[in-house]
């Protein structure tokens, strides 16, 4: 992949003037541009998908090319939580608490079949939550069991595009359903 081509240009113009330059742009655009290029993930993996997440961080796939390398061991310093693995009912409250402890703005990636729907444990299980979105809102879903590192990178780049486009979740409006008629 040609990385340079996927990187958006700086959102603003530089006007040359004697002794330097003047930068014009909107502050929101600049903040979102900066934010999207340094998303710090939380160290969070509950099962097999976490192995793929670790390999995405490793030298071969190297997610630090896109600004994700600073994986934090505390939710208080993390921007994005990658739900890499199965969420069981007992883990649910823990996931909720971790999410609540992350500072705004925070983003969620549901990695793999387990995190999106319960995956291979959808049927006949007493313990698995059928999708992490039953517990916390999810920004980007990744299919696969487990997804390849390229898929995770694609999801992270998708999240970057979402961040750059402005306030992500607030922008998504849910159209009101028509009220059932009384008849």
């Amino acid at each position: 992949m040609d990385v340079k081509k996927t990187l958006d240009p700086f959102p603003g113009q530089v006007h040359q003037s004697p002794g330097g330059g003047i930068l014009t742009g909107t502050l929101d655009d600049v903040i979102n541009w900066a934010r999207s290029n340094s998303l710090w993930p939380l160290v969070f993996g509950t099962s097999c998908c976490a192995i793929e997440m670790m390999s995405t961080a490793s030298a071969k796939y190297d997610w630090s090319r896109f600004g994700f390398e600073v994986a934090r061991a505390t939710p208080r310093q993390a921007d994005v939580i990658i739900i890499a693995g199965t969420i069981v009912n007992k883990m649910g409250p823990v996931l909720k608490r971790l999410y609540d402890q992350m500072p705004e703005p925070r983003y969620v990636i549901a990695m793999g079949a387990c995190a999106t729907s319960g995956g291979p444990f959808f049927y006949n299980t007493y313990s698995v939550v059928k999708g992490a979105d039953h517990i916390i809102p999810v920004d980007v879903y990744i299919a696969g069991c487990p997804p390849r590192p390229e898929a995770l990178l694609h999801a992270l780049i998708t999240l970057q595009a979402k961040v750059k486009s402005g306030a992500p979740r607030e922008k998504i409006s849910i159209p009101e359903l028509p009220k059932p008629s009384a008849s």
């Binding site: 009912n89 006949n124 299980t125 007493y126």
Partner: peptide
């Protein structure tokens, strides 16, 4: 050990039923 203290039933028994969480084939 793994389940919460207030759990009712023994999930690995063949006759275990959990109509709320279990989706049967």
């Amino acid at each position: 050990l793994f389940l919460t203290d207030e759990w009712v039933g023994w999930p690995l028994r063949k006759d275990y039923e959990d109509p709320i969480n279990m989706i049967k084939l």
